[in-house]
Structures are given as structure tokens and as C-alpha cells.
Simulated assay, not measured.
Amino acid sequence: MAEERKKTYYISIAHGEISQLKTASPWDFQIEATDREIAELREYFDQNYSTDWQAFWRAHVPYVQYHYDRENDAYDETMMKIYEMIYRLGNDETKAQIRSLGILPDDRETNE
């Protein structure tokens, strides 16, 4: 089986966008990824979009605190997967940006 070719993509975390066009919209991170890796990243963004809506509706129930909320836990866990994947696929600038955020444990940064 032939190895998949990596292409350059530009990622916007806030909008959950993945684009091959650098000038299409504002972006946060540049990565090199295969079609399969992009499909996995898109799935993470889609999961968080769904979880975000669940959290929105749950927010109208004021007696559930954030730290007892499964939707928020799921959202946070998926965001960590997104940042880990972007770190792994990112160029040197992307990796430096994510390291500067201080959100990944040191052991995850070194498991490239």
C-alpha cells in the first residue's frame, strides 16, 4: 500500500475550521497531514460541536456546576486531543505556539 502524501493545512480552533488555503480565513496553526489524519481531526471538531450544543442546553439548568458536568468534561478531553494532534502534525512554529500555551503535559509533547 502506498504511503499517503501529507498536505499543508491551516487550522482555526475557535471556528473548528480546517483549510488548505492560507488566506481563506484567519487561522491559528499550520500542520502537515494526510487525508486520514484530517478526517480524524475533523471528527474531533465535530464531536466538540455536538458537545458544545449539549452544554448550551444544559446551561439552562443552573443547579449543575461546571465540574460535575459530563458535557464539559467531554469537551475538554476532546480539545486536549485536538491540541495533541495539532502539536504532533505541526511545524516548528505551531509546536512552539502550543508549548507556550502550557496546556499539554510534558510527556505528551515528547511523544511525537
Score class of each variant (00 low, 15 high):
2 A>C: 08
2 A>D: 12
3 E>V: 09
3 E>Y: 11
3 E>H: 09
3 E>R: 10
3 E>P: 00
5 R>G: 04
6 K>A: 11
8 T>Q: 07
8 T>F: 04
11 I>G: 09
12 S>N: 15
12 S>E: 02
14 A>Q: 12
15 H>N: 12
16 G>T: 05
20 Q>M: 13
21 L>A: 14
22 K>E: 11
24 A>K: 15
29 F>M: 05
29 F>H: 15
29 F>I: 01
31 I>Y: 07
32 E>C: 04
33 A>P: 15
36 R>Y: 10
37 E>V: 01
37 E>T: 01
37 E>H: 04
39 A>I: 10
43 E>L: 11
44 Y>P: 15
45 F>Y: 09
47 Q>K: 12
49 Y>S: 11
49 Y>N: 10
49 Y>Q: 10
51 T>M: 05
51 T>R: 12
54 Q>A: 06
54 Q>V: 02
58 R>V: 06
59 A>S: 12
59 A>M: 03
60 H>V: 00
61 V>S: 08
61 V>G: 02
63 Y>T: 08
64 V>C: 05
65 Q>H: 01
67 H>G: 09
67 H>Y: 13
68 Y>W: 08
69 D>E: 09
71 E>M: 08
72 N>Q: 12
73 D>C: 11
75 Y>V: 01
76 D>I: 09
76 D>T: 10
78 T>K: 01
78 T>S: 08
79 M>R: 06
80 M>S: 11
82 I>K: 08
82 I>V: 13
82 I>W: 07
85 M>S: 11
87 Y>M: 05
89 L>V: 00
89 L>R: 09
89 L>D: 09
90 G>N: 07
91 N>R: 08
91 N>F: 03
92 D>S: 14
94 T>Y: 13
96 A>W: 00
96 A>I: 00
97 Q>G: 00
105 P>T: 14
107 D>N: 11
108 R>Q: 09
110 T>Q: 10
111 N>P: 05
112 E>D: 10
